[in-house]
Design a binder for these strands. Structure first.
Lengths: 332, 332
DNA sequence: CTGAAAGCGCTTACAG
DNA sequence: CTGAAAGCGCTTACAG
């Protein structure tokens, strides 16, 4: 591979000038710039990113930290992040760290900033306090208080309004026994709160069996399947099920079908996310649409602005209800 | 962040000795080794990967090039790659390049080797001829001839035997009109060939309408949905459908259901891959199981061995048929 | 607008 | 077994 010195020699300039041209500094005469660019083309020169990073103390990489690479929810967001980051000369690494590999991964792959789709755990906070790189946090909900020790902004969806809308629609369609399937954890306790708030608002009764909380590493079909079985055992009289995730809802539908129930006659299902899978499930799944690509794109933009020390504000997306075939009585 | 010099000073040794300890060279006395390790612990020292890469001309990164990050097929393989690579101090980048971004992505993110899940196109070959980094190619099929200009090995699945098995099973279950949905392209022409070979072997008739080839950037639900509609229009008498991919099969089932058909009474479906989605579709999907995690893990091992100049041989995996509810008459 | 020079944090022959 | 020193390919104040 050609180095910067080869270019300098071929173009008959100093290597400093080559650097200036490569990095689009404006203080270079047109004549020299042309010579340099010609040499770059001729030798198909590409800067050595290790050398550049060593000097500038930047990595030109950001990381997207997710709980499950095989869940398309995150990889759709990743597309949005990567597209923006790429346009700015940044690469986006995708990590699914476990508790044990987290530190190792992080230090083997230094990055200039982090986009998190996982909870901000205590050890993680500790780490970030030391490292001090900016963080964009993708949550379902706007958290109450932001950490102050490092740059931190959030990108969330307005799930509270979404849940209110769902329960309003179900209520309007004469559903009164509405269940919730959700994952345990900080982020999802908020979903539970929104559910309770909305149920109360419409004077709908709910008890502990109506709320199925699962513990799982990821948000996939299986916990939905298992949760639905629990629900069928405990509360077969329920008529509508809200799931914290599309795949979880599809898993739940799969359990209902396996137990001989007919959807949506016996149970209506509503998912949160609107992934491609929702369109092709049988029956197709009604859901709250989250703007994944957009969320990713804006997260990338925010993080790169934070890295560049620009002022950045947290963002909350509105959601939309998408009516398909898994719900009985809702006509929208 | 602490540098190597800080460690050397604290441990009272030269920086060369620190390097030797960090890189597990054996020619260091236990006494100095202990001192260095203590200093490393005390300062929470992490080597600067840019400096290391600059010196060794390595990046300690490999890339996995896939056509669609949102397809869990590839991300399951990715897990297998990443786990092995990580254990060896390597990171795995995930790229979904388009024709326009391919070069840019590649040069902004130099890597020590490539695992390809895309066709080996002419411009890509050109690039690899210049760069000369080793390549592990994940194909459905063992290709006839390997490129010679760079290190190249393949990891494939024995799809020919798999298709033969499927058609034998369908034939045994009295299916005679068997259709194939597949993507256009080098890799998939081989699937077509296997289909034809097997159909001939069992003396089963087939015509052009029975073979639906779609053109698409990815392997997802949608092309399956559309292909099935074409099939229903042209050959409603078909009783079994083989799809080149699970999600494509689920998309096809979704179309059949939308047109009022009952599965598997009217159509039997068989997918290739056995992703998680296959277990939770309605009905659950019978399919050929591909060993994704294992394929990834071995690909990673092969690539790292090739990078280390060890001898490496191409690998072909056997497949397995998984019986679920989408097929009529097969009892296995 | 341009160049000579120092230095980023490592590794590795070389000498002892 | 250990250290001094050169050098990987860049960037960037500094001087002119």
């Amino acid at each position: 591979m050609a180095t910067r010195d080869d270019i300098a020699k071929l173009a008959g300039v100093s290597s400093a000038t080559v650097s200036r041209v490569i990095n689009h500094k404006d203080n270079v005469s047109d004549e020299l710039r042309e010579k340099v660019l010609a040499a770059v083309r001729e030798l198909d020169y590409r800067p050595n990113i290790n050398a550049k990073g060593l000097k500038t103390n930047k990595t030109y990489r950001i990381a997207y930290i997710i709980p499950d690479v095989t869940n398309p929810y995150y990889t759709e967001i990743y597309k949005g992040i990567n597209e923006y980051a790429f346009s700015q000369g940044y690469s986006t690494l995708l990590f699914q760290p476990t508790a044990e590999t987290w530190y190792e991964t992080f230090f083997n792959n230094p990055v200039d900033g982090l986009i998190l789709a996982i909870d901000l755990s205590t050890p993680l906070k500790q780490l970030l306090r030391t490292i001090k790189i900016p963080v964009v946090h993708q949550t379902l909900y706007k958290p109450d208080n932001d950490p102050k020790e490092f740059k931190y902004k959030t990108v969330s969806h307005d799930i509270e309004s979404a849940v209110l809308k769902i329960i309003q629609l179900l209520h309007g369609a004469k559903h009164t026994k509405i269940a919730l399937i959700t994952k345990k954890g900080e982020n999802h306790d908020m979903l539970l709160k929104s559910y309770i708030k909305a149920m109360k608002k419409y004077n709908l009764p709910y008890d502990a069996h109506q709320i199925v909380s699962y513990e799982s590493e990821n948000y996939n079909y299986f916990p939905g399947y298992e949760s639905m079985i629990r629900l069928i055992k405990n509360r077969p009289d329920v008529t509508a099920v809200i799931a914290n995730n599309d795949l979880t809802a599809i898993g739940a539908m799969s359990a209902a079908a396996a137990y001989g129930f007919c959807i949506p006659r016996d149970f209506s299902f509503i998912g949160i996310n609107d992934s491609v899978a929702a369109r092709y499930s049988n029956p197709s799944l009604s859901c709250v649409k989250l703007y994944k690509y957009q969320q990713g794109n804006i997260s990338g933009r925010m993080l790169l602005d934070m890295i560049a020390d620009k002022e950045v504000a947290s963002v909350e997306f509105e959601t939309e209800f998408v009516l398909r075939k898994s719900t009985q009585g809702i006509t929208k």
